[in-house]
Design a protein around this nucleic acid. Structure first.
Length: 1168
RNA sequence: AGUCUCUUAGCUCAGUUGGUUAGAGCGCUACACUGAUAAUGUAGAGGUCUCCAGUUCAAAUCUGGAAGGGACUACCA
């Protein structure tokens, strides 16, 4: 590396100078340096004994590649931790790996080409889990690489790993705590279940982004026929007979007539049907009831079956009639209806409340050998009532299959209609479902020949006259977050954590958490807590933390194990009581025996190496208090429990010696940050466990960053190919530019449109400017041997402009510190950009250039060096959290020469503190004025086409108050230099000379005037110059508004000197500047002299002269320039370092130059 | 489908408690500077503040509604 070479050869008392800015190479250099000097470790060690700032790293899964969205949250985390470290806190950052769970398992299955069913058959559970353990760290290297390259400081040498025994032991401890608090229980419930993944899903898994997708499903409005007879001693409902009678009576006139599908028969025409809509026809074989709303109005409608065209009488909610029947066909002529008719005639022949319908019986729709009354249990196929029924959709009658819906289950249980589960766990109909037996209800196997069973069911119903409407319906439906296959709701036995028991406390404590942005905590997270359900912990999978619960076969007795020791102890007890030979501690060689299956050796020689995963733990038999054998519950726990328990598990709490102080020092976190998608994931589980285990928040501040979108605002996805590769980005554009861009472009919580052009801009604009400013400093400081060896010059003894930039610098420190304290890094970054561009580079350095290269090395020059040095070094400290590499580079380049700071790296230094004494608001204000005035003068020059090099005599500034005048007087020199004028004149109001404009001050006047405001404004604008003068003199003026007298004061108006007749004028807000554009011969002469200097400088440069070379000049005699050369000879010679300038009649070998549109020759010679 | 949120210059974003010429950077155009020079500066062009209605003396800002984007919620049968 070139910079390496330079490092060695550069003298220690010189600032390094560079040929160009190469940020990636700076980063490589500093990465190596940090590594060699253990900079990260030092930065933590340095704060030993200091107050801790607790930070938790959310564990990523090393099972997938890191993406650019990981870079943004990690930048955020890193910058806060670095900032707090520099603020004097000790910030330990332990990395972590999330290693369990479905993504890992599915990856392995895909790789091995197996499915869940094959586990335990084609491959042993032991080998399968071994494979998972191998695979889970697949991309660990890549993660470590990106972590390092992006400059994320986190301790990757001692990470917590969720599959680690110690980690699992803490999880067991936590589970036992919950168990002891009666917060852990087992129950059957209808849960989201993924047949494709073979496991139930927790509510927060279902709430992962992208799980709800739009799908088109075949939907059916099925017709359930009302039972005719009262056979088998089934009690009748009085309404039943009445319904048939109404129907029979209605069809009476049409009997024997050939209408619709044939001759109308009295008996068949009297059939009555309940209409019920379903988007999941595959649940129809499992139907056990029809639910109606007790207060909903229902009607009996006489009409025809639209498919078979035979007479039909249907019941549905009155409010939904128009969904199925056309208004114009009401009471239309039934006799002209044929199978070709487009419109169904209909007539209301009865009306009832939902509660009246309760208890009516209907014929089972799709009977088979497997869905009999006996199988269902209870008393199925009745109309029942439920509060959840609405008339917004469907028919107002809800097909109820208790096995496949949470509401259905609840209402079914209440009314004892039994339960039928005709679909198995693979997602296919069981063998007793008649013609549909064995068919998958959705295409779970990616079978290319898959036929939609919903369609076949619909067809069957159409043909048998039990379908009223079949149509495709597009709606959103939940899908498994891993397999992308539709979820079904399914009755499962599962273990739950009773989070609802601590709901109120969780809500209460959430209010104490500092959420960034606030809305996420109050809104999204708050709502989520309000609607909380119990946490379904169970996963029927293989690679994960086993539930440490053992039960007797009858389920009467159970034990929850909270540590490895307890497991050992209980195993020994079982050995003794049941005559087993498992987990013998004495010789550290454990054997697990399994009744009936012989002895399985455990591959452990020490307690720590005992594998707490399946299948080993499953083989351990414990004994109940009454002496019965106990088996482990086969479930694993939700991986989100793993990560949610990370504050304790990373410490192996409470099994370590100093666990009490460990937890005190490390819980709760002061700060965590992850993407918003973790709101219902990690943020939730951390909070839930914190509240349940310690009655405490788990984090005091949480920053949730938004999504990273592509530059067009689309989601990044591998499929679309708009994914940004973070490695490539960092290598090409540097980590610092990337970090800076991610932080300053938009608030972290706004979604970010990621555009590489933006990074380039940051590189050019911010880092380029900073680099140039440093280069400028280094160039001259090296020439003058400025190493800050002189005494620090008190700021009060420095020139105005120095005091100004230092004031601005301290204002900046305050702003940056406040922003970072408030977790608003975007504000901090933007403030630094403003300071660097607008104030330091654009104004201070530009205006002070001459101070650095002109004159002797004395007071003023040293002031300039010290001031610029202080700005640069402070800036390096301020920006260190966001751009750690470049900041350190800048810091060390400066500090290695001056040794002003003891720290060897910017990251070992303390964060700058505001020096309030240096902040001078008046000074900052008048500099603002100087900038505005200069800008106005330049804009006039531009307009009248007089270049800045041409001196002009004066500007005129009307000042309407003494404060402004004083302010400007202080910066006169500065303005004069900047815009090349000789003098500034002030006009303090001479009536008639300045034309003034008066504007109403709406804010102060509006409140008083109210509705009269408009007329008042008009009256003010119409005030004459004389009126304005009167107002200024008397401080008050009486206006006539709508024939009413109104007194106004000076505060009610803004008076602007708008124009000065005869001058060129420009104005901005209340500031007005007039420029005297008269170029006198004298000014012309001076302008020519400057012009000449400019040309000669150019030649010097082109000729490759050193900055210090002295020269001799011969110039062609030319009358219009002669006076300028003679009169300004001293000036010219000084500027161009000439010892003599001779006017000669003819120049032989000169360079041709152009001055004021005239070409002439000039010859320059080095005077050695 | 509902709830929340966003929509300001070609692009990325500011915009205080409503107050009258709506700002910045990039890009574009022109110019200047030429001892920071593969830098730097200045000026200019560029806006129906998504649309419609309302409240108000006054709306980018407050209230409705619409359109489009995003997030969230929902087994809605």
């Amino acid at each position: 590396m070139t910079s390496d070479h330079r490092t060695r050869s550069y003298p220690m008392n010189k600032y390094k100078e560079y040929k160009g800015l190469n940020m990636p190479s700076i980063e490589q250099e500093y990465l190596a340096k940090w590594k060699a000097e253990h900079c990260f470790e030092e930065s933590v060690k340095l704060r030993d004994g200091a107050e801790p700032f607790v930070f938790y790293e959310g564990p990523p899964s090393a099972n997938g590649m890191p993406g650019i969205h990981h870079v943004i949250s990690r930048t955020l985390k890193d910058l806060v931790c670095r900032y707090k470290t520099m603020q004097g806190f000790q910030v330990n950052r332990k990395a972590g790996w999330d290693t369990h769970g479905l993504p890992v398992e599915l990856g392995v299955e895909k790789e091995l080409g197996i499915t869940k069913e094959d586990i335990g058959k084609k491959i042993s559970v032991e080998d399968y889990n071994k494979k998972c353990r191998e695979v889970v760290m697949r991309y660990k290297d890549k993660w470590e690489e990106i972590t390092e390259k992006m400059g994320y400081w986190v301790d990757m040498k001692n990470p917590y790993i969720t599959f680690d025994n110690k980690y699992i032991e803490t999880l067991w401890w936590a589970l036992k705590e919950l168990y002891n608090k009666d917060l852990l229980y087992k129950s059957v419930s209808i849960q989201p279940y993924s047949p494709a993944a073979g496991t139930g899903l927790s509510s927060h898994e279902l709430n992962q982004p992208g799980t709800y997708k739009d799908v088109k499903d075949t939907t059916v409005v099925a017709m359930f026929s009302l039972s005719r007879m009262t056979s088998d001693g089934v009690p009748t409902n009085p309404l039943q007979q009445k319904l048939f009678e109404l129907a029979r009576y209605a069809w009476e006139p049409f009997v024997k007539l050939p209408i619709g599908g044939g001759l109308v028969e009295a008996d068949r025409a009297a059939a009555v049907y309940f209409m019920a809509w379903t988007t999941t026809p595959w649940t129809l074989p499992s139907n056990c009831g029809l639910t109606v709303g007790p207060n909903i109005d229902y009607v009996l409608v006489q009409t025809f079956n639209p498919y078979t065209h035979t007479p039909a009488n249907v019941i549905l909610a009155k409010a939904l009639l128009n969904k199925y029947f056309k208004q114009e066909a009401q009471e239309a002529d039934f006799t002209i209806y044929t199978s070709e008719s487009k419109v169904l005639p209909w007539k209301i022949i009865g009306e009832f409340k939902g509660s009246d319908l309760e208890g009516l019986r209907y014929e089972q729709l799709l009977p088979s050998s497997g869905n009999t009354r006996e199988v269902a249990g209870g008393d199925p196929w009745r109309v029942i009532t439920g509060d959840f029924v609405t008339t917004e959709d469907g028919t107002g009658i809800v097909h109820t299959a208790p096995a496949f819906g949470a509401d259905d289950y609840r209402v079914g249980k209440k009314h004892d209609i039994g339960i039928l589960t005709m679909v198995d766990k693979q997602g296919k109909f069981n063998d007793y479902t008649g013609e549909f037996s064995g068919r998958y209800v959705k295409n779970y196997k990616d079978d290319p020949d898959y036929k939609d069973v919903d369609v076949d069911i619909a067809v069957k119903l159409k043909l048998s006259g039990h379908a009223f409407k079949v149509e495709k319906y597009e709606h959103t439906y939940p899908h498994c977050w891993r397999t992308d296959k539709p979820v079904i709701y399914y009755p499962l036995d599962a273990w739950f954590i009773r989070t609802t028991a601590v709901k109120d406390r969780m809500i209460e404590l959430n209010k104490t958490i500092n959420w960034k942005p606030k809305a996420t905590g109050e809104g999204r997270f708050g709502n989520w807590l309000e609607n909380m359900v119990d946490w379904n912990l169970s996963r029927s999978r293989y690679w994960g933390t086993p539930l440490p619960v053992w039960r007797t076969d009858d389920g009467e007795e159970m034990k929850c194990i909270g540590s490895i020791d307890e497991l050992m102890h209980e195993a020994q007890k079982a050995n003794k009581k049941l005559g087993l030979n498992q987990l013998i501690e004495e010789d550290f060689s454990f054997n697990v025996s399994h009744s009936g299956e012989g002895t399985l050796p455990i591959q452990a020689t020490r307690k720590e190496e005992l594998d707490l995963h399946k299948p080993f733990v499953d083989n351990i038999i414990l004994v109940s208090d009454s002496g019965k054998p106990m088996q482990r519950e086969p479930d694993l726990i939700d991986v989100w429990f793993d990560s949610g328990a990370m504050p304790y598990a990373q410490l192996h709490y409470p099994f370590e010696k100093h666990h009490k102080s460990d937890i005190q020092k490390n819980f709760p976190a002061d700060f965590i940050a992850e993407g918003v998608d973790q709101t219902r994931g990690w943020f939730y589980t951390l909070h839930a466990l914190g509240v349940m285990l310690f009655d405490s928040v788990a984090y005091k501040t949480v920053v949730s960053n938004g999504l990273v979108l592509d530059k067009n605002g689309n989601k990044m996805s591998k499929r679309v190919g708009n994914v940004i590769d973070p490695f490539e980005t960092i290598e090409k554009y540097s980590a610092d530019a990337t970090r800076w861009y991610l932080i300053t472009n938009a608030s972290p919580w706004d979604s970010l449109r990621f555009d590489l052009e933006g990074i380039k801009e940051v590189q050019r604009k911010y880092f380029g400017t900073l680099y140039n400013t440093y280069q400028f400093f280094a160039l001259y400081a090296n020439l003058d041997n400025f190493t800050f060896k002189e005494k620090h010059i008190p700021v009060s003894k420095r020139p105005e402009i120095d005091r100004w930039i230092l004031s601005a610098l301290n204002t900046l420190i305050g702003k940056v510190t406040d922003s970072l304290e408030d977790y608003e890094p975007t504000q901090a970054g933007r403030a630094m950009e403003f300071f660097l561009d607008e104030q330091l580079s654009n104004w201070y350095v530009r205006l002070c250039r001459r101070r650095f290269w002109k004159g002797e090395y004395e007071h003023d020059k040293i002031c300039a060096y010290q001031t610029l040095y202080e700005c640069l070094q402070t800036l390096s400290l301020l920006m260190a959290p966001i751009a750690p590499f470049f900041a350190d580079w800048l810091f060390q380049n400066l500090n290695n020469v001056t040794k002003r700071c003891d720290a060897t790296s910017v990251h070992l230094a303390d964060y700058p503190e505001v020096n309030e004494d240096l902040i001078d608001f008046d000074l900052e204000e008048r500099m603002r004025l100087a900038q505005d005035i200069s800008s106005l003068v330049l804009s006039i020059r531009k307009k009248v086409n007089i270049k800045v090099r041409q001196p002009l005599q004066r500007i005129l500034i009307p000042v309407l108050d003494t404060h402004t005048k004083d302010q400007i007087s202080n910066i006169e020199e500065l303005i004069k230099n900047e815009v090349n004028i000789k003098e500034i004149e002030y006009i303090i109001d001479t009536e008639g000379f300045i034309k003034k404009k008066i504007k109403p001050n709406f804010k102060s006047l509006g409140a008083r005037m109210g509705a009269k405001m408009k007329s008042a404004a008009a009256a003010i604008i119409q005030m004459s110059q004389h009126d304005i003068a009167m107002l200024e003199k008397d401080k008050t003026f009486t206006l006539s508004v709508d024939s009413e007298s109104i007194d106004i004061g000076l505060g009610d108006v803004d008076i602007i000197a708008e124009d000065i007749p005869g001058w060129s004028v420009a104005n901005k807000d209340t500031l007005t500047v007039a420029l005297d554009i008269n170029v006198t011969p004298q000014l012309q002469e001076e302008g020519n002299a400057r012009e000449l200097v400019n040309r000669i400088q150019k030649i010097r440069k082109e000729s490759g002269f050193e900055v210090t070379d002295r020269i001799l000049v011969n110039i062609q005699d030319y009358e219009p320039l002669k006076n300028a050369i003679i009169n300004y000879s001293d000036y010219i010679c000084a500027e161009i370092l000439a010892d003599a300038i001779n006017i000669v009649p003819k120049v032989e070998d000169g360079t041709e130059i152009e001055v004021n549109d005239v070409m002439l020759k000039i010859f320059i010679l080095k005077n050695s």
